[in-house]
């Protein structure tokens, strides 16, 4: 029998080692798997490379992982925000490496990793600082930059519901990076608001098929301050 469900967030992230590359879903706070991140902070892994759209907001989730100085490098598109003070402090002190990637290239590099693509030419970034030193090519009169996939050891994503096979459905704009990150990691860990019996999710509506998901852990809405009790 396949059963990808785990009893606790601590068990789900227990084997993330020092130096691992970890994708974390979410756009700002929407879709951020805060309880998995809290468990990772408690677990203590260091020297992590984190892939996320942002670099933490306020004093929760990813921002706290940065504050605890567990992150060596962050790959993201939009670190600087009004509430990114923990990142800002580390960056100004030279204590964190930043790889800044245009948001669409970030998404496509993650997608490419999950889809087994070796590299791809994208028009985004051509002629800018962010394409300096990168291979370029003109195809049918348009200029492109060669970009490589971003793979990870682990992906931490948040979804609305999942089953023991790892099928996932998401909620509104909290979906964002979850489905593509789930495909791009050696081990994908999903926190879901509820675990449902096999067959309860409409196969036509499954967003992430279970083949991409390795562990599912239930974090009910409202279990901590970081989630909310939306009626969806």
């Amino acid at each position: 029998m396949i059963d990808k469900t785990m009893a606790t967030v601590a068990e789900a992230i227990a084997d993330i080692k020092d130096g691992a590359t970890v994708m974390i879903g979410g756009f700002g706070s929407a879709g951020m798997p805060s309880e998995l991140i809290d468990a990772l902070i408690a677990q203590g892994a260091r020297e992590l490379t984190i892939v996320n759209n942002n670099a933490g907001n306020g004093d929760a989730g990813l921002a706290l992982l940065l504050k605890a100085r567990r992150v060596r490098k962050i790959i993201c598109s939009f670190p600087r925000q009004t509430d990114s003070w923990h990142f800002d402090t580390l960056y100004r002190a030279g204590e964190i490496e930043l790889e800044l990637v245009p948001q669409g290239n970030l998404a496509e590099r993650i997608r490419a990793a999950g889809a087994g693509i070796g590299a791809f030419y994208t028009p985004t970034g051509f002629g800018t600082l962010l394409a300096q030193g990168k291979e370029t090519r003109e195809i049918d009169g348009r200029h492109y930059v060669l970009e490589y996939p971003i793979r990870a050891d682990f992906a931490l994503v948040k979804a609305l519901a999942g089953d023991r096979w790892g099928n996932l459905v998401y909620r509104k704009t909290a979906r964002n990076f979850g489905p593509i990150m789930a495909t791009a990691a050696r081990c994908t860990i999903a926190q879901v608001q509820r675990i449902v019996p096999l067959g309860a999710l409409d196969p036509e509506a499954v967003v992430t098929p279970g083949i991409f998901v390795h562990r599912v852990v239930c974090v009910p809405a409202g279990a901590t301050g970081a989630t909310h009790g939306a009626a969806a």
Partner: peptide
């Protein structure tokens, strides 16, 4: 300045 690009480059081209 801390650089941040978001979707600006993709939007401008797309």
């Amino acid at each position: 300045a801390i650089p941040a690009v978001g979707g600006a480059m993709d939007l401008a081209l797309g």
